[in-house]
Design a protein around this nucleic acid. Structure first.
Ligand SMILES: [Mn+2]
Ligand SMILES: [Mn+2]
Ligand SMILES: [Mn+2]
Ligand SMILES: [Mn+2]
Lengths: 218, 218
DNA sequence: GTAATAACTTAGATTAATCTAACAAATAAA
DNA sequence: TTTATTTGTTAGATTAATCTAAGTTATTAC
């Protein structure tokens, strides 16, 4: 259907345009590490295929078809990450690169089997929602830990802007999804937070870290 | 390292040259469904990379390096097939196409994990040997069922020239690896055999089928 | 031993995905 | 409101993988 390359563009467009609904060629270029003229001609091609709406000097928008296709690739990516963690015993910091490749496999039955073995999961190992079979993604509205106040008790629900290094950082501190955190103190000066949890009654997390942790009130 | 395309050529060269140690461009062309001029230029490229030895109008031979690379891809293919059957519950007739894609993934840790989860298997679900980590393949010398005589009792050890249809044919008759077969009669006229086994005291197998079943004496 | 056929190679074209260089438009700074 | 900077586009080149058409060499048939 679409090439490996096109699929990576679609995914990038989907992720970059998530908030504003549109992206600039420049952002796509940076995201994928591909030069702007290349992005430009790819956008023409995707427009030709009715996957994006694109006119010179205007921002790029995914069409409904484009969103669906992107959603289906992200579905494969996230199902894969879940499979690698749950069924194969990988750590959540090891799976992204592998999923980046497996997401391009053309084999519906393979992903259906994964899905079934996992019991039709709704979220991936980082707490991100897994799009359904039509490519639709259910956004879950969590709060950033950074927006909570001292005294709050919250449950770690998702990690955003994940990099392997950040996930290893969390591993070192025993921070994992589902963990209950008590916010003991918020430092006004730099927005850092002192939190307590099982195994660790006092851990100080920088504002940068708190911005990347999504939580649920309990 | 090598492209997806180059890897498929290497694998084809390995399989086609297994017996004679050499292949013709024509055979490669047919095997891969790619026209001869394309094969020709790819052979020049692989020769450039020291993966094959190739001179005009002479048969193609893999170098040691080429054999090793091919072996490592076949290793990934067969480990994958084993994983799909043992860990994911696929039938042996469903796994080849999926493995054909997964064999190209670049992720040593992924295949090491598979290997470990499977307990370092030596053969794939069709009875073919899995090359070791250096790409070396241990050939196991089985006999063809077709070369056995009436009265022999044998164990089904491997299936060769497997196609999904042939494997489904075997499924329908409950024929699987490890099964003990008693050869009841060999028809001189067409080489067909009457065999008996648990669940089926009398099954007639054509010569074509018997040529594709490898067995061990018991 | 020539003629026919099959196998193989060369030449040149095509498509996808990328790049650099150069130019054009939009935005930000002065 | 000019000027400078950033962003975006066009043009043209490159590499990988494929093809068709047209010759060449080798093999098979007669
Ligand atoms: Mn990921
Ligand atoms: Mn990818
Ligand atoms: Mn196979
Ligand atoms: Mn393959």
């Amino acid at each position: 259907m679409h090439s490996y390359t096109e699929e990576n563009y679609l995914k990038a467009l989907f992720n970059l345009s998530a908030e504003k609904g549109e992206v600039s060629p420049n952002e796509v270029s940076k995201q994928l590490g591909i030069k702007m003229p290349t992005v430009n001609s790819m956008m023409k091609k995707l427009a030709e295929k009715k996957l994006v709406i694109y006119e010179s000097y205007k921002p790029i928008r995914l069409t409904e078809k484009g969103k669906k296709e992107a959603g289906l690739i992200i579905r494969k990516h996230r199902l894969t990450e879940m499979f690698l963690v749950q069924q194969m015993g990988f750590g959540w910091e090891e799976v992204h690169e592998i999923a980046e490749q497996i997401e391009h496999l053309q084999s519906p039955v393979f992903f259906e089997k994964m899905d079934a073995l996992l019991g039709y999961p709704k979220i991936d190992p980082h707490g991100s929602p897994i799009p359904d079979k039509t490519g639709k993604m259910e956004w879950i509205k969590y709060e950033k830990l950074s927006s909570c106040k001292a005294g709050d008790t919250v449950k770690l629900a998702a990690v955003i802007h994940t990099t392997d290094d950040f996930l290893k950082f969390l591993n070192q501190r025993g921070l994992q999804l589902g963990l209950k955190l008590k916010i003991k103190r918020v430092e006004k000066f730099d927005g850092s937070m002192e939190v307590g949890y099982t195994k660790n009654p006092s851990e100080v997390l920088s504002h940068t870290v708190c911005e990347r942790l999504l939580v649920e009130r309990v």
